[in-house]
């Protein structure tokens, strides 16, 4: 893999440029579908972008220097980590990834929620702390089936994303992908699992105290999480072996958007669950799917 190719991959596709555009677009799709299903017209497509620009242009409230630094650094690192997760998705055929890239990817994706928990506590607001506590419990709830499903897929392969999707037998993949799909709304803070950012209930949850550019960074990190998670799902569910690059890119984008539409419809048509219900849901149904996938791949069936 040449340096030029890697640079393009990091800066254009699926890295920086694509990630930003797709992130804002996916946020818009979610808001638009939500509005349409409520019988509203909804925001124009440039809305998330202008929200972001406007927030960048606001003058942050003065804080004690250390707190101000922490509250800027946490969302900034979250943006960088999630951007890294998008950039290492092996979409193009020339990039087969490297052994172990799935571990790097999962850890980069997990940095976001971890920093969000820290960020909620760092803001020293009651609502921020409440949101952070909820997020921490949620992380424990949804990561159990999510990681189990990934292990089930990775059992017989090289721990690289491009092999993960092809080596496991189809029934293992079906069960594991179902478990992963189940975890996506919780990872993206969508209904019925919008517990940690529960608007109207605990104000804005973890981001209650964040203003201007700091909030803009959190919003951006969230938009990038959309791209990373739907992209991971697209790569794992529809592996294209030996297809031309143009098809790989189109299918990648198409499946990502289809997942966005599915998640948005589910989010718009459900109400928020309680924290205990969510934990039970993931530890029972999520884990049931994921553990049976793991069992099947351990048994080699």
């Amino acid at each position: 893999m040449s340096t030029l190719f890697t640079t393009i991959q990091l800066l254009v596709f699926p890295g920086l440029l694509y990630a930003f555009m797709a992130g804002f677009f996916m946020e818009w799709v979610q808001r638009k579908i939500n509005a349409r299903l409520q019988g509203r017209i909804g925001p124009p497509f440039y809305q998330p972008f202008f929200d972001f620009v406007k927030l960048l242009g606001k003058k942050p409230i003065e804080r004690p220097p250390l707190q101000g630094f922490i509250m800027t650094a946490l969302p900034a690192v979250s943006v960088v980590a999630t951007l890294g997760a998008v950039a290492i998705l092996p979409v193009l055929s020339a990039d087969i990834g490297f052994p172990g890239d799935v571990i790097l990817l999962v850890s980069l994706i997990e940095i976001g929620p971890l920093l969000a928990v820290l960020g909620g506590f760092a803001s020293r607001s009651l609502w921020g702390g409440l949101g952070a506590t909820r997020e921490a419990v949620m992380t424990a709830a949804y990561n159990l089936p999510f990681l189990t499903a990934l292990i089930a897929l990775a059992w017989n392969s090289d721990l690289s994303i491009s092999l993960l999707a092809t080596t496991a037998p189809w029934h293992v993949r079906l069960l594991a992908m179902a478990a992963i799909l189940l975890c996506l709304p919780a990872k993206l803070h969508l209904n019925p699992f919008s517990i940690s950012s529960a608007e109207q209930e605990i104000y804005a949850g973890m981001t209650t105290e964040y203003d201007g550019p700091r909030l803009a960074l959190w919003e951006l990190a969230h938009a990038l999480e959309w791209v990373a998670l739907t992209g991971l799902f697209a790569l794992l569910s529809v592996p294209l072996v030996g297809a031309a690059d143009i098809w790989r890119v189109l299918v990648f984008i198409g499946v990502s958007l289809a997942v966005v539409v599915l998640l948005s419809v589910v989010a718009a048509s459900t109400a928020r669950l309680k924290l205990a219900q969510t934990a039970r849901w993931f530890w029972l149904w999520g884990l049931l799917l994921a553990a049976s996938a793991l069992g099947l791949s351990l048994a080699g069936i």
């Binding site: 509005a35 509203r40 925001p43 406007k54 804005a204 105290e209």
Partner: peptide, 22 residues
């Protein structure tokens, strides 16, 4: 904010925290 008037068309967003507001 309801379907009949739908202020979100103008980008108007009702925020729970004053830190986020304009």
């Amino acid at each position: 904010l309801t379907p009949r008037y739908d202020a979100e068309q103008l980008g108007i967003h009702h925020e729970g925290s004053p830190r986020h507001a304009d």
